[in-house]
Computed example of a mutant assay.
Amino acid sequence: MINNQKQTVKIGIGELNVVKSPVVIQTSGLGSCVGVVLYDDTVKVAGMAHIMLSKPSKITDPKASKGKYASVAIPELIRRLTYLGVSKTSLKAKIAGGAHMFPNAASNELAKIGKHNVEAVKQQFLSYSIPIISEDVGGSNGRSIIFDPQTANLTVKTVQSGIKVI
């Protein structure tokens, strides 16, 4: 478990940030959104994004947060982490979220946002040759996550499944 005495940086929907240990980083309300963690466990640095969609549309607001889209958030996290001295080749990833929140709308492509978000995130990691160490994706339950760069543990909380560490 995470030590409650540690300073915590909270990431809102569509946001991203980076932290150094002993600070932990967290986000809540991951339904179809995907929580992405990029980290280097040797230097104890991590970044997190709360990704809402796979990529911007043609009519996207240019002022949209860099954490909103997988195609923008992951390169931005990499940029920020390398600025802190992390080597791209030492980055690892953990992901959670991408739930199917509207099971009664199974035939509607819009209802598959979670699945599309997970696929987009994995494609980004593949393009940067970043391994996904663990994941807790899909299902029909929302999640909250906390990542501790000191231990490289991602704590996933769901109403149905409780707490697990991946």
Rank of each mutant, 00 (worst) to 15 (best):
M1I: 09
M1P: 08
I2K: 09
I2W: 06
N4F: 10
K6N: 13
Q7H: 12
T8C: 15
T8D: 06
T8E: 12
T8N: 11
V9Q: 07
V9C: 06
I11L: 11
G12L: 12
I13T: 11
G14Y: 09
G14P: 04
L16T: 05
V18Q: 00
K20L: 13
Q26I: 02
S32Y: 07
C33W: 02
V34Q: 02
V36Y: 04
D40F: 07
D41H: 10
V43A: 06
V45Q: 00
M48Y: 03
I51L: 11
S54E: 10
K55D: 10
P56G: 05
I59W: 10
T60V: 13
G67T: 02
G67M: 05
K68P: 01
Y69W: 12
S71P: 02
V72A: 03
P75A: 07
E76N: 12
I78K: 07
R79I: 05
R79N: 09
R80G: 03
R80T: 09
L81H: 06
L81S: 07
Y83K: 08
L84N: 09
S87F: 05
K92G: 05
A93T: 08
A99D: 07
H100S: 14
F102M: 08
P103I: 08
P103L: 09
A105L: 15
A106P: 02
S107C: 09
N108D: 13
E109Q: 08
E109M: 14
I113W: 00
G114I: 03
G114F: 00
N117G: 02
V118E: 00
E119T: 08
A120M: 15
K122D: 12
K122S: 06
F125E: 02
F125R: 01
L126P: 00
I130M: 03
P131Y: 03
I132C: 07
I133Y: 01
I133P: 01
S134V: 00
D136T: 06
S140P: 00
N141W: 14
N141Q: 15
N141K: 09
G142Q: 12
R143C: 02
R143I: 06
R143K: 15
S144P: 02
F147T: 02
D148H: 01
P149R: 01
Q150S: 14
T151C: 05
A152L: 04
L154C: 04
T158R: 14
V159D: 10
S161V: 05
G162M: 09
G162P: 02
G162A: 10
K164S: 13
